[in-house]
Design a protein around this nucleic acid. Structure first.
Length: 307
RNA sequence: GGAGAGAUGGCUGAGCGGUUAAAAGCAGCAGACUGUAAAUCUGCCGGGCCACGCCCUACGGAGGUUCGAAUCCUCCUCUCUCCA
């Protein structure tokens, strides 16, 4: 598994490693799974993808339901198939939650229910709705209410949803214990760049996305999918959508996308710091990164017991 | 040359006699994350300390009025807009 904040060169590294050790790339990026969302999600190029088999890219349409559980299921199937071919699955992406769902396995817990979510959202949209929902939560599940901020609408809704479906507070369902080992063994490599360097790369990459036609891509996608579709809320597409609809100037959209991209990279770092058994490799020199990663993998493969 | 407007913490920008180390946003730092996760959310954010409290420095500069001034007055410096 290859991790690291956005813009550290994961995709290229993964392909080189796959070529070298006989592997196949499996995506764990929550936006690159969407068909057509290419430029803004920094999807690996066709040339790169042609070098080695790539999985779980372009697998759903923007208006389809998809979440971490769907991902974990697909990733499991994909992984097994690759192993059956006696090849190495190389997971690459930036959505830590998806990877954890796959590696650690999500606990058995009631699934998302659109009808219930719609009801909850209707309540939330009323004046004082969010605080009302949180008060409701504290009555049925004080433990979760203490943990979840009233403004955190997604989590408040999910906690209430689980209770409405099962009659049992979400805090009573099995929780993914942080200390338990992953259900699946993995060699975990994370790429890192120093902040100043990373910011420069990210800013430039965002400008290139707009130059490469992010606005046009968004305009085209809007003819096929509702503007409320999930991926239109992501970094880049949210701003491009605003430009297409005329509510934001191009200049501002670029700056806003750069800002959100930087914040995202930072959030990814926070997530990764909590990930166990991660080996950090400096990503400023691709050659060095490649050999260090390869060396690390070979060490582990020679002693599979340590996996 | 004339007429206005303004100078606030890294930036944008409120405040316009006390409750103001100074709203809010941004940037920065740290964190959370059990089926929306590139989403959603939380905390810190002038400096110092024997830190649930105290001290220092702060609203262009210098004076002044006042028990008390970022807020009022005077002068100075600089910026912007408009008219010549």
């Amino acid at each position: 598994m290859i991790a690291g904040p956005t813009g550290t060169g994961k995709s290229e590294l993964a392909v080189r490693l796959a070529e070298t050790i006989g592997g196949e790339v499996v995506n764990y990026d929550s936006v690159q799974i969407y068909r057509g969302f290419d430029i803004g999600s920094a999807k690996p190029s066709a040339e790169l993808r042609a070098r080695v088999p790539h999985h779980l890219f372009d697998i759903v349409d923007a208006d389809a339901d998809f979440n971490a559980a769907s991902y974990a299921r697909l990733a499991g199937e994909t992984c097994s198939a690759i192993l059956a071919r006696r090849r190495a699955p190389l997971f690459v992406g930036g959505t830590g939650f998806y990877l954890r769902a796959f590696l650690g396995a999500l606990p058995e817990i009631p699934a998302r229910d659109e009808a219930i979510r719609a009801r909850l959202r209707r309540i939330a949209s009323r004046p004082c709705g969010p605080s009302h929902l949180h008060r409701w939560l504290s009555r049925i599940d004080p433990v979760s209410a203490a943990r979840i901020a009233p403004a955190d609408r997604h989590r408040v809704e999910r906690a209430l949803e689980v209770w409405m479906i099962s009659g049992r507070p979400i805090s009573n369902w099995p929780s993914p214990s942080a200390d338990a080992p992953d259900a699946r063994p993995a060699i975990k490599i994370a790429l890192s760049l120093d902040r100043a360097q990373s910011v420069g790369i990210l800013d430039q990459r965002v400008e290139e996305m707009y130059r490469a036609g992010l606005i046009e891509e968004t305009r085209t996608l809007l003819t096929r999918f509702s503007r409320t579709s999930r991926p239109f809320t992501t970094i880049g597409y949210r701003e491009a959508l605003a430009v297409v609809e005329g509510t934001m100037a191009l200049r501002d959209a670029v700056a806003e996308t750069q800002r959100r991209t930087r914040a995202y990279a930072k959030r990814q770092m926070t997530w990764l710091r909590g990930e166990r058994n991660l080996v950090w490799i400096d990503a400023s020199d691709p050659e060095h990164t490649f050999s260090a990663a390869l060396q690390h993998i070979e060490q582990h493969l020679r002693r599979p017991g340590e996996l």
